[in-house]
Structures are given as structure tokens and as C-alpha cells.
Amino acid sequence: MKFIYKTWWKVLAVVLVFYTLISGMLFQVPRLDILHETIRNLYFHVPMWMAMLTALVTSVFFSVLYLRTGKEEHDLAAVECVNTGMIFYGLGLITGMLWAKYTWGEFWSGDPKQNSAAIAFLLYCAYLVLRNSIDEEQTRAKISAIYNIFAFPIMIVLLFVLPRMTDSLHPGGAGGNPGFNKYDLDSHMRLVLYPAFIGWSLLSLWIATIRYRIRLIEHKKNAIN
């Protein structure tokens, strides 16, 4: 756990996000109908989901670690990762809804990916409710870790397999949005998108570590009292 106290990756996160903020607004983008300039949202909306996914994967990792070692810190890390993931979930959802309003015409158009995201939200709400329903600390840590691991593969199916099998307004679907697949080939956009993914993922980890450190102090204090 030395890693979380290092500074270099936090600097990297800030530099990458800053780079995408500038280049995302200034670099050339493909000229597409309907989307117009909003294609730049790709750099600011999609990385939110990447950040959420990173936080949730980390949370599952710590849940596994908890089941193997039984150290309470790992449980705290897992729950704080979920909390951070939920923040990025909210940001991804709101920005996505705004984008959808001005390109697809509705805030909520019942797109498979939108629905899947809503279900994934239910899943993690259930995780948090489960945590609150158990008083005894070790049982709580164990059971919520098990639920977290159990639910994760299903969420992956939900978010990445099912939407691809049906018509979706999002790119990558079976029917797809024909005007939108062009950017797959645009190397300019990759130059911004991938650094954005890495930068926001690191940023979400940073937030999670801060929350984790606060949680650790609270936990120690409760243990002493």
C-alpha cells in the first residue's frame, strides 16, 4: 500500500487531464452531422465511465484481497472505491443525459447502455444497503465483499455484452449510429481519448485513496474509543 502515498502518479493524473482539457477543445475533430462540436464531449463524458470502471475494478480487487487476508483495511478500501465509483457514475450519467438531449433529442431515450447504467446503479445501491443492514463489522465486511465479487461479472455482462447485442444509439451496437463509427478510425481523437482515460482513471484512484485515508483514521479512532 506504499503506492498510494507516492506523488508521481497524482502529478501524472493532473498533467494528463489538463492536457485533454486543452487539446480536447483545440484539436481537430471530424465534422459530423447532428454531433457538430459535441463530438468533443467524447473526451469529457466517456472518461467518466472509465474512471468509474477503474474504481469499481479496484474495489473488486480489494474485496478479493479481503477474503484472502481478512484485513479490515482492505474492506475499507473496497467500500471507498465503490463510493468514488458512484460519484463518477453520477457525473457520467448527467453529462451523458445533457449530451443526449442535444443530439438524440431526449434526456433519457431508453438506449440499452443508458438502461444498463441505471441497473448497474441499482446493483451498487444494493451493495451499500447490504452494508448498512449488518451491524457486526467482520460479518459486514465479509458478506459485502462476497456480494461485490458476485455482482461484478454480471455488471460486466450488463454493460459491455448486452448493449452490443441490440440496437443502440451508442457506438459499438449492432444497429449502431452510422454517423458515429467514423471516429474509430480517427487517430487525432485517439491521441486525446486514451490519455483522457488514463488521466481520469488515475484521478478517480486518487480521490479513492484520499477517502480511504480519512476512513482509516476514523476507523482507528473508533477502535481506540
Binding site: 441497473i119 441499482l122 446493483l123 444494493a126 447490504l130 455482482a151 454480471i154 450488463l158
Partner: peptide
């Protein structure tokens, strides 16, 4: 019910 419904939706 809370735990199982999100899992069973897919």
C-alpha cells in the same frame, strides 16, 4: 429482493 433484482435483470 434488493440484492437479487439488479443481478437478475440481464
Amino acid at each position: 429482493a434488493i440484492l437479487s433484482f439488479p443481478v437478475v435483470i440481464p
